[in-house]
Design a protein around this nucleic acid. Structure first.
Lengths: 95, 95
DNA sequence: TAGATAGTTCAAAACATTTTGAACTATATT
DNA sequence: AATATAGTTCAAAATGTTTTGAACTATCTA
């Protein structure tokens, strides 16, 4: 056990990150795949410009909803399910 | 069983409603109380202007996060926990 | 080395949300 | 009837978010 409750500020950041159709589609795609992919692949599949993609991945990352690591030129992203658990699945427990 | 999955549009509406510190504080207060209260009381407790309160309650209501009914002059609101269950607690099931 | 590919950064433009105050409806109190 | 209270609506102002294109860094390929 590491934490008691989510502050309003933290929760706001997570819900803001979830409050956009493009980001929900990114999450949907990462969830379907079930493994990490490059930002480029996600962008091609969902037809997002690379600048816009870069912006959305940053928002998701700063909210802790995805993890990312760079391999040479490419950035690989995957869902961080523990954050979804903390803020969504266990919403009432941590609220 | 009434529904299979949440569309991106519906989910966006719910997460937008949750993505604001004032609205999260309203939800927090309604959750603590555990019973319905008038908008006026919530506004006084959280020190929100009545116009701003009216706006935020509308957003919460349109997202289905609260139920409301009028009794004479006053509007009573309470959390609609089934919506929280559908979009948060059972996020992955309905996604 | 030159050109291509993956992604980031920046500032401006476009767009969306929130706050404010005034005017309003409806109900309650004196 | 006059005044007060609870809440809504409207338009303008203030803020905040997202998109866009150009310029950039770093890595890869020929």
């Amino acid at each position: 056990m590491t934490k008691q409750v989510n502050t309003t500020e933290e929760s706001t950041k997570v819900f803001k990150a979830l409050a956009d159709p493009i980001r929900l589609e990114i999450i949907r795609y990462l969830n379907q795949l079930g493994h990490e992919v490059s930002c480029g692949e996600v962008g091609r599949v969902l037809a997002i410009s690379k600048t816009s993609g870069s912006y959305h991945f940053k928002i998701l990352q700063e909210a802790g909803l995805i993890t990312a690591h760079k391999v040479a030129r490419e950035k690989y992203v995957a869902l961080d399910r523990s954050t979804f658990d903390q803020y969504l699945t266990h919403f009432w427990q941590n609220f």
